[in-house]
Amino acid sequence: MKILLTFLTASALLAPVANAEISLISPADAKALIENPDASKRPIVLDTRGGYKDYFRGHLPTAHHINFDTLRGTHEAVPVQYLPDDITKALLVRAGANKDRTHVIYATGDVLPNDEILSATMVAHVLEKEGIKDIRILDGGLPAWKKAGYAATQEYFGNPAGLLPEKGAPEIAANIEDVLAEKDKAEVILVDARPLNEFIGEDDVWLRKGHIPGAVSFHWARLMEKDNTHKFKPFAEVKAELEKAGITPDKKIICYCGTSREGSLVRFYLKHVAGYPNVRLYEGAWKEYVWLKNKSLPTETTPRMAK
């Protein structure tokens, strides 16, 4: 497998994808891409849902199923950590990720507690970190596709082996050393994307309660439409809320959550919808933070007051 990956990356041409961008895409525009008469210009469509039976029940035409959670596993006792890079590359190559193609990523949307959009943003983060530059999240997900009158299919679709870029973008991720070194700087803000009850420690989930000292709470669902948790609110609608929380484009922003899915959505929104220039994701997340250094890293349960 390593030989195959070396060949795939080393033989890749370095020319950028035409009109490459990381952004949202409407169902109509996604449909037009999928139905392009030139097969070489059609997108790689990735259904990221964890429930494989949902894929069987119906999915976008040409959608290849990649369960988001296959990209994570337990490491040094900490569950759901991102896998080593060579394994991640192998999984993405198997899914057809290609440096020269557009990638349309989606899951299902619904009212809370449905959170499958987090699967889409997590996979988008992994692709971006591996150097893929053309990624579109289907705004509204499968429900918006159906609402637009477009048919789902039950036909399987397998992509040919992918072709990854030679150079990735590891800088979009932060590790615990980055967090500890940066969190107290005036120009840095930590954004906790979990629900408020977890932020203040009123939950039955986590080994230790609360949040990283100094972090601000901004639940990911505040960025999404109430009747479809896969559809993003326009930036103009949430700009004032973000500013009230101190989340402004002049800051260096590190997003985190419980396992990195919620944080991946907030990072995607701030970076690729709002256009903030410096946003990273702490991939280890709260699950790692509470375990490290013999559980000695400080926590707090008092929310920072909005400015």
Results as ranks from 00 to 15, higher is better:
Leu142Arg: 01
Asp178Ile: 01
Ala124Cys: 02
Thr74His: 00
Leu112Trp: 14
Ser217Gly: 04
Val123Cys: 02
Leu190Ile: 10
Lys146Met: 13
Asn67Lys: 12
Asn175Tyr: 09
Asp184Pro: 00
Ala107Asn: 10
Phe232Ala: 11
Leu180Ser: 05
Ala10Gln: 14
Val273Arg: 01
Gly275Tyr: 14
Glu288Ser: 05
Lys252Ile: 12
Glu182Val: 01
Gly246Lys: 07
Lys287Gly: 00
Lys167Asp: 07
Asp227Gly: 00
Leu112His: 04
Ile87Arg: 01
Ala181Arg: 10
Asp139Gly: 03
Ser119Met: 03
Met305Trp: 06
Thr301Leu: 09
Lys53His: 09
Ile44Gln: 06
Lys147Met: 10
Gly58Tyr: 14
Thr299Glu: 10
Lys99Asp: 04
Ser26Asn: 05
Leu292Glu: 14
Pro43Trp: 13
Gln81Arg: 04
His211Gln: 13
Gly51Ser: 12
Leu180Ala: 04
Val290Trp: 06
Glu202Leu: 02
Trp286Ile: 08
Ala63Thr: 11
Ile3Arg: 05
Ile44Asp: 06
Ser119Trp: 03
Ala181Ile: 03
Glu130Ser: 03
Lys129His: 05
Asp110Arg: 00
Val179Ser: 05
Trp206Asp: 15
Lys167Ala: 12
Ala144Asn: 02
Arg267Phe: 04
Glu262Leu: 02
Thr299Lys: 00
His64Trp: 13
Glu283Met: 04
Leu292Trp: 06
Phe56Ser: 04
Pro195Gln: 04
Asp203Ser: 14
Glu35Trp: 06
Gly258Ala: 07
Ile176Tyr: 09
Val78Phe: 10
Leu24Thr: 04
Phe268Gln: 06
Val111Tyr: 09
Val205Ser: 08
Pro61Asn: 06
Leu46His: 05
Lys244Ala: 15
Asp227Cys: 03
His272Asn: 14
Asp115Gln: 06
Leu118Arg: 02
Asp100Ile: 00
Ser40Ala: 15
Thr62Arg: 14
Lys31Arg: 13
Pro143Val: 12
Thr70Tyr: 06
Ser119Val: 00
Ala245Thr: 05
Thr248Ser: 11
Thr48Pro: 10
Ile22Asn: 08
Ala30Gln: 05
Lys307Cys: 00
Tyr150Arg: 01
Pro234Trp: 10
Asp69Phe: 04
Lys226Cys: 03
Arg208Trp: 09
Ala12Asp: 07
Lys239Asp: 14
Lys183Ala: 08
Val205Tyr: 12
Leu164Ser: 02
Leu163Lys: 11
Tyr156Leu: 14
Val205Lys: 00
Lys133Ser: 13
Val238Asp: 05
Lys226Arg: 10
Gly246Glu: 11
